[in-house]
Every structure is written in structure tokens, then in C-alpha cells.
């Protein structure tokens, strides 16, 4: 039924008018974001709105700002249930506290998809995430490869106790442990709370404590790696003498990659946002639904559609290098 309407709309191109037609109600999806201040979240929102199903009026995605508060997100989950949304996608703030949203959605029989960060439960319909342990492993590997598995590194961590910090940290350690015993020394590790400004101060202080000793910087996100780059510059060192990596692939990091200053591990906001919308649509529309985002084409062989039935979709990381950075920047309109 909905498929039929979809094709009608495609032919008529009257997207705006069509959404108001009787029986043409689009699938209503509540997209619960943990916050909206970070560039990565902004990217996810943008790609969600660019999903073909949304553009064609088949789906209507409403974004909620969780204001970095798990309790706020739980309230928003309850509200989405009460307002009878057809599906819920959550990018959770807290991997324990927000299990609540999954529980209420399941009780109401509303399909729920978890994206970007993980929840400590198996009760959701599906997860469309990137494995943070893998991301942490890849970025540390990039640093260590440049150092030839030898030297002193510092790790700038995410907020203590958060799943990002724990899992990326685990990946960092795995990569370090693959080097010969004692060849790589972690001089310092401390949180800068995902913030560039905090990382800038922290790295300046470390450079003071360990002048000319630090060889590599593992930033658990790009912003903090960029803060470290600013610190290195302000202390009068040459950034190119350091091996630096971060995670996420924010635009500034792509520029830094292009300048040869760091490596970034791109977390595919588009893959996560659009992938989870496809999985949610499939659950609502039924067997007739075919995935509309081209990410499934892009990741063929690495992440299969599998009729929307996979429990956990691992959206692959992309290591951003001077070779592929131009294409990525172009995709963002630069």
C-alpha cells in the first residue's frame, strides 16, 4: 500500500502536496539524539534529512535534542511512544540509563533502532553502529605504524566512564599490545571531555612536563586531536614530527589530514543515520520495502542489507588519508 503511494508520489513530484493527502501519511520516525552541539550529531541530522525516503515524503523524521541528559532522553522516548510514532531511532547518551527507551518502545510494540552508540541490552530491533573498539584500534594503529611501533605516546581520553572512552580505550590498548613488549610507552592519559579547548591546555601542560619526549598523540576523538595540534604549534614544535590520530572525521580533521598533520578515522554519520532509517522503514512498511539509501551499495561486501534483519549492523570505519580526503571534503561541499 505505502509502496504504491510512494511510486505515485515519485511520478507526480508533488512531494509537499502529497504528504497532506489522505491515506498518504508518511511513516513517522522519532530520532532521539543525545545532544545537538557536536558537529558529528549535526552531520547525522543532515544525512537523516537527506535520506531518499525522507526527501520523497515517504518518511517524516522528527529530531529530538536530548540535551546531553539520559533522563531527558528517556522522557522523550516515552513521549514518542505516547505520540504514537511509527518507529524510534535512538542515538543514546548513556549505555545503561537509556535502556529504558527500548523497554517502553517494546511494550508499545514500536520498532526501535539504536545507532551511533551502543546500549547494554539485546532487546532492540537492531543496532546500526560503528564498533568503537575497532575505531580505537584503527587510530592507535595509525599512530603506531607511523612511529614504527617505537616511542612515547599520550592518550587524550573522552569523558571518564562513558562507553566511548571505555571502548575506544580498549581498542587503543589492543593496538599497543600488538607492538613488542615495552617498545611503546604511554607517558600520560587523561580526559579532555571531547573538547578541543580542554585538550589544548592539557597537551600544552604535557609538553611542558615532557619536553621533546612525546612522539605520538592518540586522541579519542578528532576535536581533542586538533586541540593537541594547536598545543604543539603554540609550543613551537613541528606538527609533522608527531604521529597524531583522532576519530570521527569532522571537517576540521579532514582539513588537517589534507595538511598532513594527522590521521582521522571516519565514523560514517551517513551510514549510521541512513542505515538506521532503512532498517526502521523496513520494520514499519513490511516486506515490500527495499532499502533506498545508497550506503548499502557503498559497503557491499562489508555490511550486507540482509533484508533488514541483521541484529547488529557494523558500519565500517574509513581511515582518512591524503589519498581519499579530497573526495570526502567534496562530499561535504568543500
Amino acid at each position: 500500500m505505502k509502496k504504491l503511494i510512494a511510486s505515485l508520489m515519485l511520478s507526480s513530484l508533488m512531494v509537499a502536496g502529497a504528504t497532506t493527502m489522505a491515506n498518504a501519511a508518511p511513516v513517522r520516525i522519532a530520532f532521539l539524539m543525545y545532544g545537538n552541539k557536536a558537529e558529528f550529531v549535526q552531520l547525522m541530522e543532515r544525512y537523516a534529512k537527506e535520506h531518499p525516503a525522507v526527501k520523497q515524503g515517504l518518511a517524516e523524521v522528527t529530531l529530538f535534542d536530548g540535551r546531553y541528559d539520559a533522563a531527558v532522553q528517556n522522557d522523550q522516548g516515552q513521549m514518542a511512544v505516547n505520540s504514537k510514532y511509527d518507529a524510534i531511532i535512538i542515538n543514546p547518551m548513556d549505555f545503561e540509563a537509556n535502556i529504558d527507551v527500548v523497554t517502553v518502545a517494546n511494550e508499545a510494540g514500536i520498532p526501535i533502532v539504536v545507532t551511533n552508540a551502543r546500549l547494554n541490552t539485546q532487546d532492540m530491533l537492531s543496532e546500526v553502529v560503528s564498533d568503537d573498539v575497532e575505531g580505537g584500534y584503527l587510530e592507535a594503529k595509525a599512530v603506531l605504524e607511523k612511529l614504527g611501533c617505537k616511542g612515547n605516546v599520550v592518550i587524550i581520553e573522552g569523558p571518564k566512564g562513558g562507553s566511548g572512552e571505555i571502548e575506544r580505550g580498549r581498542g587503543n590498548e589492543r593496538a599497543i599490545s600488538e607492538c613488542p613488549e615495552g617498545a611503546v610507552k604511554v607517558l600520560e592519559r587523561k580526559t579532555a571531555n571531547w573538547s578541543r579547548a580542554e585538550a589544548l591546555d592539557l597537551m600544552q601542560n604535557w609538553l611542558t612536563a615532557h619536553p621533546k619526549e612525546i612522539d605520538g598523540v592518540i586522541g579519542q576523538n578528532d576535536e581533542m586531536a586538533l586541540g593537541a595540534i594547536e598545543a604543539i604549534k603554540s609550543a613551537g614544535y613541528d606538527v609533522k614530527d608527531f604521529a597524531i590520530a583522532g576519530i570521527d572525521g569532522v571537517t576540521d580533521a579532514l582539513r588537517a589530514v589534507k595538511a598532513g598533520e594527522m590521521t582521522s578515522i571516519l565514523q560514517d554519520a551517513r551510514g549510521q543515520a541512513q542505515g538506521s532509517i532503512d532498517v526502521a522503514m523496513k520494520a514499519v512498511v513490511g516486506d515490500d520495502y527495499k532499502p533506498m539509501s545508497d550506503i548499502w551499495e557503498q559497503y557491499k561486501g562489508k555490511m550486507e542489507w540482509n533484508d533488514g534483519k541483521t541484529k547488529r549492523y557494523d558500519v565500517p570505519w574509513t581511515i582518512v588519508t591524503p589519498e581519499n580526503v579530497d573526495a570526502l571534503l567534496k562530499d561535504r561541499g568543500y
Binding site: 545537538n36 552541539k37 557536536a38 573538547s195 578541543r196 579547548a197 589544548l200 576535536e223 586538533l226 586541540g227 594547536e230 576540521d252
Partner: peptide, 13 residues
């Protein structure tokens, strides 16, 4: 100062 220092204006600054 902060924007010039970090090279980026962030909404969470």
C-alpha cells in the same frame, strides 16, 4: 581569544 586559540568556533564552547 578562545576561538582564535582553538581555531574553531564550537556551539559547546
Amino acid at each position: 581569544i578562545l576561538t582564535a586559540k582553538t581555531g574553531s568556533a564550537q556551539t559547546a564552547a
